[in-house]
Design a protein around this nucleic acid. Structure first.
Lengths: 128, 128
DNA sequence: ATTGACTTTTACGTATAAGTCAATTTTTCC
DNA sequence: GGAAAAATTGACTTATACGTAAAAGTCAAT
């Protein structure tokens, strides 16, 4: 049987527009099959879209996401390319760790904001 | 004495341009003092800039950063406003937690990418 | 064969968050 | 006090990631 998805099924599941998925195809991130002109998304495409959106949430650019995806499909054969890629991977890793720290700190700050709100609410609530 | 910083000191420290800091001022995120027309940044401004850049790294928009900053300066007096803010805080918290999960997963993936590279390198290395 | 819901392509438009440039002040330093 | 360095402003430009509109094509069901 080999299940496939229509474009709108996926837009609904992931909360994106058809334009977005077609854009990702134009950018070479996904390559759904076709029946006539209509795109047929396979489970593999669906998983890829999940990855793309995850990258997007983290703030990767399309180009960066493309780089990462490409390695899975087809790790480069040239030593220079491989080393370049590994350097990039290291950089990304550092960047992500920094982001994680940023997130931790901001989460702590949100706690403060919330507390300030509660205090203020209490002040107002008592007075009335 | 009360130390203050010039705009270029801060641009160097944080790796942003003067235009960026002025942009943040235009957007109402910071309010450095002036001596004549020249901006004088106090430690408080500096800390604020750190926060702004942290927010930026995480991917917050200027508007969102402004919202968060505003609460510190001046928590709103209206109950409705406070409740609205707390709702936003909750949403942000969820968003950040999602982002943290995304980061964890992507870090794990980068490990795989790296391993694929190493494997490939070994393959090539042995053959030559 | 028509309706309705969906999908396609192409092309141009838009918002965000700055970056760039150039022309002036302003400050600093000797 | 005058040159050099630094800072300011306004206007314009840029890149990314889609949005939107138009004009057809597709398909299943009535």
């Amino acid at each position: 049987m080999d299940k496939y998805y229509t474009i709108t099924e996926l837009t609904r599941e992931f909360g994106v527009s058809t334009r977005t998925l077609r854009f990702y195809e134009d950018e070479g991130l996904i390559n759904p099959e076709r029946r006539g002109r209509t795109r047929l998304f396979r489970p593999a495409d669906r998983r890829l879209i999940q990855e793309i959106l995850r990258g997007r949430r983290i703030g990767f650019t399309i180009a960066e996401i493309r780089d990462i995806i490409r390695v899975y499909k087809d790790p480069p054969g040239e030593i220079g390319q491989l080393e370049l890629l590994m350097t990039k991977v290291s950089e990304k890793r550092e960047e992500l760790r920094q982001k994680r720290r940023d997130i931790e700190e901001t989460l702590a700050e949100l706690d403060n904001v919330e507390e300030a709100c509660l205090t203020r609410l209490a002040e107002i609530g008592v007075g009335t």
